[in-house]
Simulated assay, not measured.
Amino acid sequence: MDIGQKIRNARKAKGLTLEALAHQVGTDTGNLSRLERGKQGANQDLLVRIMGALGMSLASPLDMDVSNVEPALQPTRPPKEYPLISWVIAGEWAESPDNFHPGDAEEWLASTENAGDNGFWLTVRGDSMTCAGNPSFPEGSRILVRPEADRISGKYYVVKMLDSGEHTFKQYIEDAGLKYLRPLNPVYRTMEINGNCRFIGRVIDTKMTGL
């Protein structure tokens, strides 16, 4: 069985859609679909992220066809702990973490995602990022923020609105030359942005609580 089929079987066994897995590993559904069907290879970093998300082992390369994969695969990145902080200090922490002390964090949570030296967790407030689909970020769930991340349409960001000084968590969309912050909950309106906000960082991991 080739590696694409193994990934597909593992994804289905975990009950993940293509969209959900693509979101977790930072790729798009088209790339993931082509990889599963053997129409496209995967680079080393992406394959490691996929296998880490699916709990697949890289210890037995003879058990899989890696002809379309770059050699010298490395094991999944070991978990690293990042601080869970308040929304009030999120922007300041991202810019000057050295001004804070370990006691300023509510707690420390681990992730295998690389949020950089200044990464941090936040607790989701409200229901604007909750939806019936996947991903959904219900109130109380935790999101891991990587400061100074590239701005990519379709990804999720923590943003500071300059007029109100408030921080918000939304999906960033570019369409026909315009830029928007979109909530996943259709009850809330999409906001067009035009320099009236500052991007704090991109959300790269999430944890559910209270399960």
Results as ranks from 00 to 15, higher is better:
residue 63 D to I: 03
residue 63 D to L: 14
residue 64 M to K: 03
residue 64 M to A: 06
residue 64 M to F: 04
residue 64 M to E: 03
residue 65 D to P: 09
residue 65 D to N: 15
residue 65 D to E: 15
residue 66 V to R: 15
residue 66 V to L: 14
residue 66 V to G: 13
residue 66 V to K: 10
residue 66 V to T: 15
residue 67 S to M: 05
residue 67 S to W: 08
residue 67 S to E: 06
residue 67 S to K: 09
residue 67 S to L: 07
residue 67 S to N: 06
residue 68 N to W: 11
residue 68 N to R: 12
residue 68 N to T: 14
residue 69 V to C: 13
residue 69 V to A: 12
residue 70 E to P: 04
residue 70 E to H: 04
residue 71 P to I: 12
residue 71 P to W: 12
residue 72 A to M: 15
residue 72 A to Y: 14
residue 73 L to V: 07
residue 73 L to D: 02
residue 73 L to F: 06
residue 74 Q to M: 13
residue 75 P to H: 07
residue 75 P to S: 03
residue 77 R to W: 00
residue 77 R to T: 07
residue 77 R to P: 02
residue 78 P to A: 04
residue 79 P to Y: 00
residue 79 P to M: 04
residue 79 P to G: 00
residue 80 K to H: 08
residue 80 K to P: 02
residue 81 E to H: 05
residue 81 E to D: 07
residue 81 E to L: 04
residue 81 E to A: 10
residue 81 E to Y: 03
residue 81 E to R: 07
residue 82 Y to W: 03
residue 82 Y to K: 02
residue 83 P to D: 02
residue 84 L to A: 02
residue 84 L to F: 01
residue 84 L to N: 04
residue 84 L to K: 02
residue 85 I to A: 00
residue 85 I to K: 04
residue 85 I to N: 02
residue 85 I to M: 10
residue 85 I to D: 01
residue 86 S to D: 11
residue 87 W to Q: 08
residue 87 W to T: 10
residue 87 W to G: 11
residue 87 W to F: 13
residue 88 V to S: 05
residue 88 V to Q: 13
residue 88 V to Y: 09
residue 89 I to G: 01
residue 89 I to E: 04
residue 89 I to T: 07
residue 89 I to R: 07
residue 89 I to Q: 09
residue 90 A to S: 13
residue 90 A to F: 11
residue 90 A to L: 05
residue 90 A to Q: 07
residue 91 G to I: 12
residue 91 G to T: 13
residue 93 W to K: 08
residue 93 W to H: 04
residue 94 A to G: 14
residue 94 A to T: 06
residue 94 A to I: 10
residue 95 E to D: 15
residue 95 E to W: 14
residue 96 S to F: 08
residue 97 P to L: 01
residue 97 P to A: 01
residue 97 P to K: 00
residue 97 P to E: 01
residue 98 D to W: 06
residue 98 D to Q: 09
residue 98 D to N: 08
residue 100 F to I: 05
residue 100 F to N: 03
residue 100 F to M: 09
residue 101 H to L: 10
residue 101 H to I: 08
